[in-house]
Design a protein around this nucleic acid. Sequence first.
DNA 1: AAAAAACCTATTGACACGGTAGGTAAATGG
DNA 2: CCATTTACCTACCGTGTCAATAGGTTTTTT
Lengths: 133, 133
Amino acid sequence: MISTKGRYAIRVMIDLAENQSDGYIPLKDIAARQEVSKKYLEIIVKEMVTGGLITGASGKGGGYKLCRKPEDYNIGEILELMEGTLSPIACLSSGTNECPRRKACQTLPMWTEFDNLVHDFFYGKKLSDLIHS
Amino acid sequence: MISTKGRYAIRVMIDLAENQSDGYIPLKDIAARQEVSKKYLEIIVKEMVTGGLITGASGKGGGYKLCRKPEDYNIGEILELMEGTLSPIACLSSGTNECPRRKACQTLPMWTEFDNLVHDFFYGKKLSDLIHS
DNA sequence: AAAAAACCTATTGACACGGTAGGTAAATGG
DNA sequence: CCATTTACCTACCGTGTCAATAGGTTTTTT
């Protein structure tokens, strides 16, 4: 289940892409357009900055902007940053201690197959694919 | 993220399929083979009975058994029963009140596409596909 | 009657989700 | 220089789910 953090992050990215200009776009505007609490977006946007997806600038005239072209982002990296992992199964998330039943597990092949499916789907989608206008 | 409930349920089904006999298989045995707490399995198995996946019988010689052939179960229905929904996005889960931004949402098509992918994957897998022996 | 099994109700600790609140630092315009 | 605007930072909170555990009751067979 993909949480609001991941979903809102993508919407912020789309908003930034569509309202691109020379300068920065204040979060207040994004929150208004997306009809999401600005306070909550702050948390999300902060992670996006430290994760290297966007850049922020303080002060008057400040705000946020993309640091790459929309076609150079893929949805998978955005979701992975926000959700921690894209893996739908605990055993497959990196950093999980290896399951002792791994060798005998009859479901693991299916989960692995599914994991690859999910990964390929989201890493194959570019931010620019979501923009119409 | 698929929880232990869904994952254990599938393992119980596999266990039942592989140890099929004329009679019923006690949960104690399943728990031992699967190395999972019997107490916790009770909760899961109960839902599987009320959901119509398996049948249970009390008393000595009792236990659980499949009520269909392994090839007549698909993984999707098992997961959907245990997880409530297979939809990875809240907006798409049945019973969710319709999002007011639905018409304008630029991410919905992607979520829908993903939702279909997930659905097709799990509904296309049969229980019998997971059994080797 | 005893044993074995499912079945039932309640409780728990930990943690994540989805926010809210209030303040601090930085940059700009006048 | 000062007010405004903006990001940035820390803390908190209520609700719910997850993953179990505990202990008892009913049903069925031998």
